[in-house]
Simulated scan of single mutants.
Amino acid sequence: MNAPGNDPAESVAPDRPLRFDVVTRILHWAMAVLIVTMLFLGAMLVGSLGNYHRVLILHETTGIAVLILAVVRIGNRLRRPAPPMLPSISRPERMVAAVSEVLMYVLFVAQPVVGWALVSASGAPIRLLGGVHLPAITPHSAHLYHLLRDLHTLLAFGLLAVFTAHMCAVLAHTLLLRDQLLSRMTFTSIRRERG
């Protein structure tokens, strides 16, 4: 195993790794899987004719998992600052990246909270896998339900747009610029070092 700071793929300075720490990488990929699952299940709910209640329970469970993981990620991000940006990332792109990161965290929290409030306003019980029931966080109200449903849909499209833009930016850096941006969030060198 290389000593800290001796592997150029792992650091730019002996005390400041280029790569995100392992906990951040695990949280990142877990969140990516949950977000894709949540969006997919949400789309299934719109066009579902059968198994609606089963898909709804999966969607609600995934949404609460996203909310919990988002809070954990925010805490982790505050404790563990990101490594320095790559030189290939321009100043305007750095500003866009910073704004999009904040926007993603806001959406990670807002989308499931609005979904929880939406179900609460409908008067239906909030059921998760394993028979867990969550308390209502808004009063039963048809008017509020319709407002929250529209907001939930709007946030879903916003989350999809930001998530897609994030993936496209990473792919552009990986395939066009070849600046190893993606390697900051992968585990390849960990496997190489162990082997």
Rank of each mutant, 00 (worst) to 15 (best):
S120G: 03
I57F: 05
L56F: 04
P81A: 06
R80M: 03
V109Q: 04
R73P: 00
F40D: 06
L78T: 00
G50N: 15
E93K: 15
V96F: 11
W116S: 07
V46Q: 13
I57P: 08
A110D: 01
M95N: 10
A117E: 10
S100N: 14
P81C: 07
S120Y: 08
E93L: 14
S90C: 10
R73C: 00
F40T: 03
G42Y: 09
M44R: 12
A110W: 05
N76E: 04
A117L: 14
R77C: 00
V102G: 05
A121F: 08
P92M: 11
F40W: 09
L45Q: 12
V66I: 07
M44G: 03
F108S: 00
P84G: 02
V113S: 06
I64Q: 15
L41F: 03
R77T: 00
P112Q: 12
P112H: 10
M85W: 04
I74H: 02
H59T: 03
L67T: 00
R54M: 05
A70L: 05
H59E: 06
F108E: 01
G42I: 06
T61H: 14
N76D: 02
F40R: 10
R79N: 01
V66K: 13
I57A: 05
V71G: 01
R54H: 08
A43T: 05
P83A: 07
P83E: 07
H53I: 13
I89N: 11
P84Q: 09
V119Y: 10
L69C: 06
P81G: 02
A82C: 04
A98S: 08
A65M: 15
N51I: 08
L118N: 06
V106K: 06
V119H: 09
S88A: 08
I57N: 13
V102W: 07
V119T: 09
V119L: 13
I74N: 03
S48P: 10
L49M: 14
V96W: 13
T61Q: 14
Y105N: 04
V113G: 04
R91Q: 04
R54S: 02
G63N: 12
L56H: 07
R91L: 05
W116L: 09
V72W: 04
A70W: 00
P87C: 10
V55M: 12
R80T: 00
S90L: 12
G50S: 15
I89K: 12
V109N: 02
S88Q: 12
V119A: 14
G42R: 15
L49Q: 15
G75M: 13
M44E: 08
